[in-house]
């Protein structure tokens, strides 16, 4: 990693102008993975002075500024109970508190990291991103977009539906990246299933979700099998494809069971 010039603009407009000047200019979020990257930045644009470190709530959504650290989210009361504390479970499993004190939500989203434990639960929620110039974009549209969004992420909005959630990270040690991570939610009759670190980036199991929606008596094992058929898994030094698939099968079933409202 090499930085030729460091800038800390005090307005979004200034930051955006710097970003557009040269394709070798780049934004710095938390900078947690900066050291490990091979990037050379002509101008590094630090977003630290733009007051984007906040968690707010209005009647419709939780709004999280892009420079909010994972530690701030981890310590915020809103995530204690939101979707059964699913996001908190995911955030809390990211490395140690030292790294969570610098890693930002915006950096996590913009990086589209396949190993991310945060993107997996987020795609099961109703999320949208607000960019400075491009405006509002659904999170899943942003993640699926092939071209780079050369804009500044201002905030993430999570719609405040009522629901239950489940998150599971499977890793060899507390500090390792996940072999697999699974998020399952249930809200207003709709199940959502997401699997990340397959090792590919988190994806929703849309066919499995559809079959659960259409069924009056949902069969969790069948839905987990369907999810494993439609999602792709791979082999890396951390785990084989078969093992990942077996884990997904088991933890999707457990997740579906955990989020299903209890009926007398």
């Amino acid at each position: 990693m090499k930085i030729h010039e460091y800038h800390r603009p005090d307005s979004l407009e200034h930051a955006y102008t710097l970003l557009q000047q040269d394709k070798h200019n780049a934004l710095i979020g938390g900078g947690g993975w900066l050291k490990l990257s091979k990037i050379t930045m002509e101008k590094a644009i630090d977003l630290a002075a733009l007051d984007l470190d906040y968690i707010k709530e209005d009647s419709n959504a939780i709004r999280i500024g892009s420079m909010t650290t994972l530690a701030t989210m981890d310590n915020h009361f809103l995530f204690d109970t939101f979707y059964s504390g699913m996001l908190k479970d995911a955030i809390h499993g990211v490395m140690g508190v030292e790294l969570r004190n610098i890693v930002t939500l915006g950096g996590t989203i913009m990086g589209k990291y396949p190993f991310s434990d945060i993107l997996t639960p987020l795609i099961t929620l109703d999320c949208e991103l607000e960019f400075y110039k491009e405006g509002v974009l659904p999170l899943t549209d942003f993640l699926n977009r092939k071209t780079r969004v050369n804009d500044i992420l201002v905030e993430l909005r999570i719609k405040k539906h009522k629901g239950t959630g489940y998150f599971k990270k499977i890793a060899k040690t507390a500090l390792d990246f996940a072999i697999l991570n699974v998020a399952v939610t249930y809200s207003e009759g709709l199940y959502k299933i997401a699997v990340g670190s397959r090792p590919g980036r988190a994806k929703l199991a849309l066919n499995a979700m559809q079959s659960l929606y259409e069924s009056n008596t949902p069969d969790f094992k069948k839905a987990a099998t369907k999810a494993c058929e439609e999602l792709t898994f791979g082999t890396t030094h951390r785990s084989s494809e078969t093992y990942r698939k077996d884990l997904a099968m088991e933890y999707i079933s457990r997740g579906l069971k955990a989020v299903t409202p209890y009926e007398d």
């Binding site: 710095i28 993975w33 900066l34 050291k35 030292e98 790294l99 004190n101």
Partner: peptide
């Protein structure tokens, strides 16, 4: 030197951070 081990921890405004990955200018 890759944010994993914690031996480079310092406090910045009271928060523990890995100094190996914290830009000095910040």
């Amino acid at each position: 030197d890759t944010t994993t081990c914690g031996v480079c921890t310092v406090l910045v405004d009271g928060l523990a951070v890995p100094s190996c990955s914290y830009l000095s200018v910040r």
